[in-house]
Nucleic acid binder design. Sequence first.
DNA 1: TTGTACGCGTTATCAA
DNA 2: TTGATAACGCGTACAA
Lengths: 358, 358
Amino acid sequence: MTRGGSVSQATGNSTIADVARRAGVSLKSVSRVINKEPHVSPKLLAKVSAAISELNYVPDPAARSLAGQRSFTIGLLFDNPSPHYTMKAIIGAYRACVAQGYHMRFDTLNSRSGSALLSSQLDAVVRNGRTDGFVLTPPLTDNREVLDYLERHNIQYVRIAPAIDPGRSAAVSIDDVAAAAQAAQYLCDLGHRIIGLVNGPPDHGAAITRRQGFIERLKSISPDIVLHEAKGDFLFESGISAGEALLSEDPRPTAIFATNDDMAAGLLVACGRCRLVVPDDVSLVGFDDSWIATSVWPYLTTVHQPIEDMAAEAVQLLLAQTKHGQPYEDHMLDYHLVVRESSSPPAEVTSDERTAHR
Amino acid sequence: MTRGGSVSQATGNSTIADVARRAGVSLKSVSRVINKEPHVSPKLLAKVSAAISELNYVPDPAARSLAGQRSFTIGLLFDNPSPHYTMKAIIGAYRACVAQGYHMRFDTLNSRSGSALLSSQLDAVVRNGRTDGFVLTPPLTDNREVLDYLERHNIQYVRIAPAIDPGRSAAVSIDDVAAAAQAAQYLCDLGHRIIGLVNGPPDHGAAITRRQGFIERLKSISPDIVLHEAKGDFLFESGISAGEALLSEDPRPTAIFATNDDMAAGLLVACGRCRLVVPDDVSLVGFDDSWIATSVWPYLTTVHQPIEDMAAEAVQLLLAQTKHGQPYEDHMLDYHLVVRESSSPPAEVTSDERTAHR
DNA sequence: TTGTACGCGTTATCAA
DNA sequence: TTGATAACGCGTACAA
């Protein structure tokens, strides 16, 4: 109030012209610095940088996108049944977007609708979105219709955890085969020999890859291991029914691996209903290390997958690829098994039972 | 391919000039229609509307925000411990933003940092955000420093579930007092007379309001009801420790009300550790009806709060208020008790115990 | 390596 | 009630 006049200082909205004047250079030179273009002498860079920070200058994204080609917006595409996965992906991608001065949109597609509907959904997303590119999360990652559409329209995209067409686009993933194998190894090392497996939805590439990694390792450890499989769809409820099916098998599994945490939490319920104590009677291992893994009791042993980092990394790859047309990179991030309270060696009785049954 | 030439049709990027030409009017007239400005004759409106839909015209947000005042971006501010609440709020707010052609940002503030830090966090958010306004979620809703800052900088905002300074801003809420009272009534109707209460963080207005509503109703039903209180912070872990404290009370509560679902899920764990069966030995009631309420077993009886709708409504109020400077509205949305498997009448033993203790 | 002139698609000002 | 014209802040083409 008493300061009077100049509002522009307070809100930090100086323009590129202010910076140029203050640094004693041309508009274009400032622009070069902002966009990290080549042909900028060190001392010009220094002058401009100084002016920018003195004026607290922040480029106006609207003006940039109007003048340039880019919208400074990227889109995150989902069709994921697990809310926990979605949340982490949003957070991670958003972090990367903010860091780069980008907007983020997210949209949900229904990939199980017909191909006509799918393509009209894509039309809608693409048309009013004006995005510079998309990050695809599973299972969209492995949907060829989506991939084809994007390529046909010349739209940049990066995939998270693709299971098909490697090299078709930039991608960020973990080694699902090895991760699931580690879970199998862990359970066997604990002494389990009768093991259950809860699968994910059949259109979900990672679900298939995890199954494969888990089973292969089991077989390679010993041909005597008994494996029971059950269907699932990555949702909590399907974990309950899968668990009830698995626990009524004979011989009954002493350990169950679910291909995601939501279903593992459902297994916990099934165990409760069957009056079985976890981990004493049944060991449980999940996959993802999402919030639900530590929102149930006992806390779930699970494979930690850095979903936030993967999404952030995907955004960075996308931006790098839109700026300089680099060849497709495939970034492999680390996973690790997190051992918590839902797993332990099988009870003695169990091994007696097993021999009795043979 | 065979259609030849015109690319502009396919991608839908026609400009306001195209529309004006096609409708045979001036640029400004089209602009008026788009922005629903007054002084537009019906037949002009009809011509322009027709041209717009024929050309599939969508205004360029970048150009709009450059020429106009608005950034077409609103911000959602969080400092919420519960990830489930956050996710729902994001989804709801995002839905409303997309419907109105707005971008959405979200940022996290740490309101427990000192006031100097808080205000620099706000500076950062406000400066590089260029948002048209903010939606404040609890507990930021009741942080006077934040409110003061926003008003001092003349920034529009809407609060979700405010507990202080009613009328200071537009707001969206539910009647927390009545909602908690209904939970109390429900438990008493079931026959419970020894009841536990898990509180939320002290800086969280709704937590206080819920406590108040719950206790008042209990007292009004009967002065003989025994109430045990425990501290909590809205997180899962605090539910566990609160539960352990409550369950070791003498007389032991036959029912516990947690002021959010995450803590109620923690109570479930405490019950398990104490070898108490829910709901046979202890009834549990939560608040929010978030995902976790149906990701545990037994499913939680809880008060459903329409978080997504509240956030969406908040966005709409904000946009209405930025466009036409209307007076502050306070929208009250509906809640309802969702009875699931975590609650039942107290076991007979319990009422014997109660009389024995008196 | 640096600078100049122009245009991006829209809204705002002012006149008709 | 309508329309012409000047910004908005920045990137791009081209020139120096």
